[in-house]
Each structure stands twice: as structure tokens, then as C-alpha cells.
Design a binder for these strands. Structure first.
Length: 283
DNA sequence: AACAACTGCAACCGCATGCTC
DNA sequence: TGAGCATGCGGTTGCAGTTGT
């Protein structure tokens, strides 16, 4: 199906937002609420793309945004969550009140990767939710040198977009979760509990999933063993740790919190089971 | 002081997907 | 049922600030 551009690009301003634009956007949203991003710029008198307005609001102007340095606790949580769910920045952001997915993504790429690397941990490339290779982006001024340098620096975190599974013949067949879309009325910073509840409540009776004691998906008597690919793909001993019920946080020599880790992991398993069940039932 | 290289972050872009008609 | 819209996600890029030579 064809995809209409989100807005006409003609005459629209790009680049950094001015204080006046911020003020106009904030004022408009305070009076009319969020949503209808397509028509918002026109109604608010902004020469911006609706997408740009949404991004500015979500990542910068939204109330409750926490700016500034990440605490060691936040660092720790990001590392743990990333080891569990990979580059699912929005999900990770949901566990860090006041932090945005964009901020966490940047922080991971610019700080945490280096920190982990210097500590002797190699983050292996992981697959993302995307299954179709992206088209090469056209750029007006391709900075090849810089781009290559960045690739060198960041290649350890770059996902093998596209045929990741084919590239890894040793991988077992797994059921990978798709990204969970947050509905309009579903604000960020909700926990996995909220996500799982939301998924369960929105699914039909046939789609109900239950977890058995092993965290497996028990669907209408047909047991589906789920081994999160990202755990496997993380490599090393992580899958073994997972299968043996060992402390996953032992992978990183950072301050540990077993309870927190278990809770996060339980929540993730529940989310995974809902997602897998929906896929299985719908196919 | 001048220039180059590097770094960090805001913003952009393309695509996926749910929803409505 | 399919087209188009609205929104969200994650990878990438632009650019200003910082550091090194």
C-alpha cells in the first residue's frame, strides 16, 4: 500500500527548535491536548512537520522529562534491560521514569557501550524488530569519513538488519517478540505489568495465554517453549545461565539487585508470552 | 590562535502497524 | 478487503561544542 508523506515538506522549517516554537507547541498542547499531530502544526501556527512536533514534545517538552546525568542505578537498569530485550528503547524507557527512548538510545551508544567495552564486555550485535533491510538513505552531504569512523566505533551495537537468523545458522528456532505499540491513551513510563495487562485485556478469549511455572506459554494445552532469541544471541554463557536459573546480572560486574532483576525478567517473560500467543493464534 | 578530529545529543527519516472508512 | 491516515519505533545524520595538535 502506498504511504502518503506525513506532511508536505514544502515551506516547513527543519533543524533545532527555537524557544518561541517550543512555547507555541507547549501552549497549544496545554489547551488542546496531545494527538492529531498532522493537523497540530497548522492549528498551532507552526511551520513544522507534525512528526517533528510530536518528537519535540515527547523528547523535550513533555512534563516530567528528567534531564541531566544518568544515575548509576539507571545505568545498571539500562544495561540489564538491554541484555534482556535488546534495542527496544521504548520498552527500556518505560522502566526509567522521566527518560525518553531517544535519550536512552543516545546514552547507550555514547556512554554505556564504551563503559561496557572498557570493562571487557562485548555487546554482540542483536536483531531488531525489523525484518526488512532499510533502503540506503540519501544524504545531501554524505560525510563518509565520519560515517565510517562511527561505524567502526559503534559497529558492536549495530543490529544485523534483515537476515540475522540466516547469518547465524547455529541459532535455534525461537519466537521473538514484536515491538508492543503503545496506544494513544497509553502513556510512557508504564511498567511491563501495564503492558501485559493491556495485551491480555485486549485479546480475545481464544488468545488468552497462561504461564506455567517454567515461564512457558501454555496455550490451550499446547505448550510452546519460548527461548528468547536475544538471550541466546547475547551468547557466552547467558543462555546457560538462563536455563540453569542462574543470576543473569552476574554477566555484568555492576551492583546487583536480584529482586529487581527477577521482577523485570518475570515481567518480560509475561510480556513475551502474551506476544507469542497472539502471533501463534493469529497465524 | 588556528585548524582538525572527536564527541554528544537533538532531530530527521523510513518503515511498521493499528485504526478508520 | 484494501487504501489511506495516524502514530510509534529505532537507526542515522547534522551540527555545535570540546579536545587535541
Amino acid at each position: 500500500m502506498g504511504r502518503a508523506p506525513c506532511c508536505s515538506k514544502v515551506g516547513l522549517k527543519k533543524g533545532p527548535w527555537s524557544a518561541k516554537e517550543d512555547s507555541m507547541l507547549t501552549t497549544y498542547i496545554q489547551h488542546h491536548g496531545v494527538g492529531h499531530w498532522r493537523s497540530l502544526p497548522k492549528n498551532a501556527g507552526l511551520l513544522r512537520c507534525g512528526k517533528s512536533c510530536r518528537l519535540r514534545w515527547m523528547n523535550y517538552l513533555r512534563p516530567g522529562i528528567k534531564r541531566g546525568n544518568f544515575t548509576p542505578e539507571e545505568d545498571d537498569l539500562i544495561v540489564r534491560l538491554h541484555s534482556l530485550i535488546g534495542n527496544r528503547w521504548s520498552l527500556i524507557a518505560g522502566r526509567l521514569p522521566g527518560r525518553t527512548d531517544n535519550e536512552i538510545k543516545n546514552y547507550w551508544n555514547t556512554h554505556l557501550l564504551k563503559k561496557l567495552k572498557s570493562a571487557g564486555f562485548e555487546s554482540k550485535p542483536r536483531k531488531t524488530s525489523r525484518t526488512i533491510p532499510k533502503k540506503k538513505k540519501k544524504t545531501a552531504k554524505p560525510d563518509k569519513t565520519r560515517s565510517e569512523k562511527r561505524k567502526k566505533l559503534r559497529h558492536v551495537s549495530k543490529p544485523d538488519v534483515g537476515n540475522g537468523i540466516q547469518d547465524r545458522p547455529e541459532m535455534i528456532k525461537v519466537y521473538a517478540p514484536r515491538p508492543i505499540r503503545l496506544s494513544t491513551g497509553f502513556a510512557r513510563n508504564y511498567s511491563f505489568d501495564d503492558l501485559a495487562t493491556s495485551a491480555a485485556s485486549s485479546s480475545s478469549g481464544n488468545n488468552k495465554a497462561t504461564l506455567n511455572d517454567n515461564g512457558n506459554n501454555n496455550n490451550n494445552g499446547e505448550e510452546l517453549t519460548v527461548i528468547p532469541w536475544h538471550l541466546y544471541e547475547v551468547g557466552d554463557d547467558l543462555l546457560d545461565d538462563y536455563m540453569d536459573g542462574c543470576d543473569l546480572s552476574a554477566r555484568y560486574s555492576l551492583p546487583t539487585s536480584d529482586t529487581l532483576m527477577e521482577k523485570v525478567y518475570d515481567e518480560y517473560l509475561q510480556l513475551l508470552s502474551e506476544d507469542c500467543c497472539l502471533q501463534t493464534c493469529s497465524s
